[in-house]
Design a protein around this nucleic acid. Structure first.
Lengths: 210, 210, 210, 210
DNA sequence: CATGAATGAGGATTCATTCAT
DNA sequence: TATGAATGAATCCTCATTCAT
């Protein structure tokens, strides 16, 4: 029933990110979001089913952008370790450059009710698949250890990035998240192979980070 | 002001775990918790500051039990890898054997407001320290790589365990969490040392898991 | 200000009858009526003052049709009892053949607010006069008892027809309302005269009802 | 779930009658009713399921009182015509002496939604049965015409009383409803028997009405 | 210590109506 | 004439918390 498209749809989403980042989900009245977006309260409901739907839409929209943009970059290298390094870099880059979005994604989104989590679960599967693909391909092509369980490995990778990101947000971002890229990479890369030759941090990325 | 001790205090906490696990935090009215605990609504406020305080108390109480019980077990071995293996085992064991508590800890607790997270943050620092101690000691005693950053390593360890546990809860616990102990251990252990000799899973724990 | 004429005016009224019969007055959003009529929401307000005005217009329009059509038929006989029989027949015939309109008239119209009832009151006076004329003429011409109070008698006649009709609608029209014509007539006719000669049901109408 | 008993229950019902009579159902905010009753808004919901439930409760309560009080009075006479006369008298007496309640019963209650009508339907059946019993007994004992259909007759009786009462309320009660008792009785009594001996208005009641 | 009846602030959502096109 | 996107007022209900008993 709601439109879910158009200029105002985007305006409301961006406004919601700002408001929710500042006030938390439960502290973000629909009226406040409408005010920030410069539309009437009722207008919200022309574009979103309800308040929950705003939160889910933020997630779907922003993670969607990320997932659709990622593969091109990841496939620029055939080296699975470089892909992993790039994944972590992109994950952190996105968050570092969208602090308010980061707060919503890492903190507020987890506050949500069962129905919200359902909406999120479907979207995040795409990201999970992305990571698992890197793992499975890396194993096939001989970069990663053949005995790795792709699901567990995906959870270790995602869990590590996520925990680091959450801590960064909770620290009120007193340091640059990107500076942790190499260290997280090292820890994870070592899990994936015994071969030191491969697991060193990609020099190209190192330059970018400086 | 609140008592925070006594038989009824514990009764209410246990009741709250059951109610919140079944209904979610926002679906758990104080009246429902009181009913489950067999006390009057007003009685709740003799033992807890407010509703949030119940959630924090669950966390403080249960994680407290865990943290205070852990060191004895962890120190039964001087081998840092065995300590890591044991940490993961204990982490998963606790959750596997308290499914309702697991749900509250992994899901409901994350739904809470800023003030709750503050209460939690203080308690969880103890657990973080526990993990960091294992890492730092492991490095000092030559088990782990000398170049490891203890904070990052702690986040990788905790993040991995946490992500695996959350996925397990969200799967409605269709498998035994403990069976993942060895796999998570292997992934993490490989991060911590290049020396295969040390990193194999402790045989003693292997027996326990069977 | 509103036009109150034209093809679309009628289209909207007919659509409103269908929508209100199916959803009730409070469940019939202006948008739903517009959709059913195949016009834009704003168009409604070119023909009607507001939502209430639609309901009143249904009443005015449909009862108007009825009242203007009735006299010709009623005057086809000079026998006051035959006129009464015919009145009841026509009242029931109309409703039986317009089930949705019947629902709106008997049920939804009564749900309305003070202002609506005012609009209705004016229109229904015409129908009241029609019935009172039959009574007064019937008395004058010696058919009905001379002592009858026309107002009370009108209320008894209208109240009886109305109650029977409302029960019929609420029964979801599980029987044919017309089959009750004779019985209602008998009850009412007996009130109006002591003379059995006159009060028997008109044979001509009996044939029609078969 | 709601209590539906106690002093406050009655206080709220009486307050609701006053407020709804003055403002109409849709114009009677719960807060207004609470204010009139001298209780907090939330208190309403300790005694009533929701706003609709207040309206239904008024009906159930007040009609209940009436129905339970009526039989004793009606059975004071074995003469079916006297019972009918008494029924009309009681019906009008009640309304005449509770003008606000009369307004709510005759007007506001009819505005209500499907769910309310359902709640009412069950209660009013008791009153319908009361009337039908008078009719059926009257026929059995030889007072009323043997060919009468009890259901139709009940509808004629109730419909007549109801229409007269509604007109009285809509006239803003500019006359005394009780003065119409005899006329309504006469009209109805004549429907029920050909025997003039029986159908004259009970002298005892005549005295009461003066 | 314990109770539970009473409180009342707080907010998402609907929908009749408008008006720029 | 006709449109339909935008408006924003209006309100029922929940539930954490209090306090007289």
């Amino acid at each position: 029933m709601p439109k879910r498209t158009g200029e105002k749809y985007k305006v409301i989403i961006e406004a919601a990110i700002r408001v929710i980042a500042d006030n938390g989900y439960h502290g973000s009245q629909v009226s406040k979001i409408a005010g920030e977006a410069g539309v009437a309260e009722g207008t919200i409901y022309l574009y979103f089913e309800n308040k929950e739907d705003i939160l889910i839409s933020i997630f779907r929209n922003k993670l969607g952008e990320f997932i659709s943009a990622a593969p091109q970059k990841l496939n620029s290298s055939e080296n699975a370790f470089e892909q992993l390094a790039y994944l972590i870099y992109l994950h952190f880059y996105r968050l570092q450059n969208n602090p308010k979005l980061a707060h919503v994604l890492q903190i507020e989104l987890r506050q949500s009710d069962k129905s919200i989590r359902k909406g999120i679960a479907e979207v995040i599967k795409g990201y999970y698949r992305l990571i698992e693909n890197i793992v499975v391909d890396g194993i096939h092509r001989g970069y990663f250890l053949p005995g790795l369980d792709p699901k567990i490995t995906r959870k270790v990778i995602f869990g590590s990035m996520d925990e680091v990101a959450t801590c960064w947000v909770l620290s009120t971002r007193q340091y640059n998240l990107l500076t942790l890229t190499e260290q997280v990479y090292s820890a994870l890369a070592r899990s994936l192979s015994r071969d030191e030759e491969y697991t060193s941090f990609p020099p190209g990325l190192k330059l970018v980070l400086q």
